[in-house]
Amino acid sequence: MTIPFSNKKESELFAKSLYDFIGKENNKKMSAYMSSENVFILHHGNSFSSTEDNESELTKHSVKVEFEYSDIRLYNIEQFYVFLHNFIEQISSQMTRTIYKTIGESCDKIGNVIDAKQEKMSNAEAFLEMLRKVELSVDKYGKVIMPQIHLHPSQSETFVKELEAQDETYHQLVENIKKEKSEQAIKKEHERLLKFEGISYE
């Protein structure tokens, strides 16, 4: 004898709706790290690339959240919410780790890394060095996008205080680098756009 009135199809749709909800909640969390324009939906394959030399494997994320039969038998509705919360937290934390890991690997590959400890640099020096190394980009409206700084919450206050405590010369230097990098970014964007036959600035 099988379970009576299983509502198999309806239960599957219930689950689909639940996972859609989890997906949306996860996307909300991920939008803090990544522009929605950079979120791609792919339907096939196990890797992605723009050119042959930067092919990347697709990373699988999985979450295991345990649920007791007794919670269902007792209609323990709190566990329902605990399940949703744990699921969303686990999947988003996994994906966040993957994002940092991927960025770190890319930076290592092109040498765009500053090891402040080894070089015995202060935070302010490291920041300046980072600005020098980074290449700025331009958004679809032609506006320069400034880089983001991601810090552990325990370090952020010290870091900001140290930068604010720097003298006028330091700040001027920062502004000069930003200006120079911005001009470079705009110039590069112009050059890129000029490759289209239908665009000219004459």
Partner: peptide
């Protein structure tokens, strides 16, 4: 309990 989709049991 419909075991294939545990959470659907809260409704069904």
């Amino acid at each position: 309990i419909y075991k294939n989709e545990m959470l659907s049991n809260y409704y069904f």
